Simulated assay, not measured.
Amino acid sequence: MRADARKNYDQLLTTAREVFAEQGADASLRDIARKAEVGLGTLYRHFPTREALLEALLRSSFEALADRARALESARDPDDALVTWLREIIAFTHAHRGVIAPMMGAIEDPESALHTSCVGLRAAGASLLARAQRDGHARADLDGSELFDLIAALAWLREQPSHAPRADRLLNVIASAILTRRMA
C-alpha cells in the first residue's frame, strides 16, 4: 500500500473507532469520511461496506476474545470459565454499541466481511460450552449457536437504558439455566 493510502486507511480506522464509540455501529459513513478529512470514495475504496469497516476495527478484539476462550479451556472449573467468558464478551459488545446486530447478521451471511470473525468467536464459545458439557457442568441440549444467541440477547438488553440495570442479574439467571451446578 502506498504511504498516502496507508495514512488514509489508518486515519479512517482511527476516526471510525471514535465515531462508532460516540454514535454506535450505525453511524454515518459520510460523517466518518468527513471527520477523517477524506472523500467518501476513499472510504469506500478501503472499506467497500460498513461490515468491512467493522471487521477491520473489530478483528483484533474478536481474535483476543477467541484467544481468551482458548486460554479459559484449561481453567480448573469449566463452569466458571464459561461464565467468565460470557461476561467478557457481553461487556465487549456493550462497549461497542450497536455491534450486536451486524454480528448476528454476519454470522448467517458467508458473504459478509464480518462472517469469518464472528464464526470464529462463536466456535470459541462453543468449545468452552462443550468442555463444560463433557465434564457434566452444563446442560447437554444447548449448542454453540444457541449460546451465541443468548449472548446477543443479553448484549442487546444491556444496550437498552431501561433494562441495563437488570442485565447482570439476568446473566446469572441464564448461567444457572445453562450450568448444572449454579444457582441464580
Results as ranks from 00 to 15, higher is better:
65 L>W: 04
113 A>H: 04
37 E>I: 00
161 P>N: 02
73 E>I: 01
132 A>N: 06
135 D>F: 04
15 T>K: 09
22 E>W: 01
36 A>M: 09
27 A>M: 08
111 E>A: 15
175 A>P: 09
160 Q>K: 10
152 A>P: 12
64 A>E: 12
77 D>C: 05
130 A>K: 13
124 A>I: 00
44 Y>R: 14
124 A>C: 00
78 P>I: 00
174 I>M: 13
55 E>H: 12
180 T>C: 11
25 A>E: 03
97 R>C: 13
38 V>N: 01
34 R>N: 09
63 E>S: 09
37 E>M: 01
20 F>G: 03
25 A>S: 14
98 G>Q: 08
19 V>E: 02
138 A>E: 10
175 A>N: 08
30 R>I: 07
83 V>Y: 14
116 T>W: 09
41 G>N: 07
100 I>A: 11
77 D>R: 11
41 G>C: 01
104 M>T: 09
116 T>D: 15
177 A>D: 07
157 L>S: 07
183 M>E: 08
11 Q>H: 06
141 D>Y: 11
179 L>G: 12
43 L>V: 04
138 A>K: 07
118 C>M: 13
121 L>K: 03
142 L>Q: 04
108 E>F: 09
125 G>E: 03
41 G>P: 02
43 L>N: 09
164 A>R: 15
45 R>F: 05
29 L>H: 06
11 Q>G: 11
140 A>D: 11
82 L>A: 09
121 L>Q: 03
24 G>H: 01
110 P>G: 08
119 V>H: 10
160 Q>I: 13
115 H>P: 14
114 L>F: 13
66 A>E: 12
66 A>H: 06
72 L>C: 03
35 K>Y: 02
163 H>R: 15
19 V>M: 01
51 E>D: 15
64 A>W: 01
61 S>N: 07
169 R>G: 15
55 E>L: 00
174 I>C: 10
102 P>T: 12
65 L>F: 08
96 H>Y: 04
114 L>Q: 13
58 L>Y: 08
60 S>E: 14
126 A>W: 02
91 A>V: 02
171 L>M: 14
102 P>F: 13
90 I>L: 05
93 T>L: 06
93 T>G: 03
126 A>C: 03
167 A>S: 14
61 S>Y: 05
85 W>S: 08
160 Q>L: 11
163 H>D: 14
155 A>P: 00
131 R>L: 10
